[in-house]
Amino acid sequence: MIAVVDYCKGNLKSVERGLRGVGGDAAITDDPAVIAQADAIVLPGVGAFKDASDTMQATGQMAAIRDALSRDVPFLGICLGEHLLFSEGAEGSDAGTNPSGLGIISGVVDRLPETDAQGKRYKIPHVGWNSIEFDSTNIEDTCPLLAGIKPGEYFYFTHSFCAPENEYTVATTTHSITFPSVVRVGTWIYGVQFHPEKSSDAGACVLKNFLNIVRSARG
């Protein structure tokens, strides 16, 4: 079973349905005990880093997910769920102390700037369909989540914050800045800034790839 983690941050049904639509056995849960038993974990969500961090710490979800990740349970973080892979988020910072994420990747998730390096103005939130760019050489090995996806493919984004540059970046997207839109840590941990469950056929392909990754983990 794939646990779709409910931490009171919005639209989970589309994620659950998206996974089921490509043949996955997904269920929404807020129970750390269920998360601990899951074959895979999907952390969806939109909204504020601090609220999510607080809720997940208080409910024990954070600890359950950290433990699962240490046991190589496949993980997909979507949007805010991708941000939560990082150690800190600037959103909801209190007296200089940033709220904590899972800390799988070190770095601070911060607001997308409103202007680019040339001073050109960009609309924030970054809403709509944007392309992801990546080196597709041996992508089945380097990032099986993107198998069958071509560089330049469009996905649906909606966010005001983004992941910092980091060594685990597989694909990037450009708005006011170029930011990581797909990250992969080791073999089993993935994060995407876009919403595959809202990205039509290309999104379904990514979800299907994740299911294949889950199956390969079970051996």
Partner: peptide, 11 residues
Amino acid sequence: ASRASEELHLP
């Protein structure tokens, strides 16, 4: 809206 969340794959 509930049905849409199950059957639509776009925002």
